[in-house]
Amino acid sequence: MTRAYQCANVPGPHLGKVGTPASVTSAIKRAERPILIVGSELANLNWALTLAKEQNIPIVATAHVAGTIAEMGANPDRVLGAIEITNLLKSPEWSGIRGEGQHDLAIFVDVLYYLEAQMLSALKHFAPHIKTISLTKGHQPNANQSLPNLSKKKLGEFLAEVAEGLAK
């Protein structure tokens, strides 16, 4: 059994799936209004920015990631704290980043692992209308699906496969 990356982070009897590139790709394809939430670990920011652009997915930058994105000559759709965007995602009446309706899929990339675990828990319990994927390093059992525990290199390959799958 795949254990949480921070190994004591066991939430309870119901654990999320360990994703594969194919399952992640298909969940993103199926979603009508996905949202990308990029956090302070910055490990795969480039990948996330490219994905957002190519797939036309709105991107929220948490912490002070907007500063780094600005240095790269880009802008996120919104700047919000991890807890602020999670709070908005919890509200069924929120109309989403682009005013097109509440999102149905939240993809977390590089939010600080244990803070992200808590945000995923909040969504798991209080946002039944939304599915979650974590592509942050290390398995997150509070997400509907998340990565297995991979080396940096293998993680890069996983994400590249997802990008390829989505481009098809």
């Binding site: 309870g12 119901h14 999670t86 828990s121």
Partner: peptide, 9 residues
């Protein structure tokens, strides 16, 4: 209050 359970039980 915003809740983020650390344990589901």
């Amino acid at each position: 209050p915003f809740y983020a359970p650390i344990c589901d039980m």
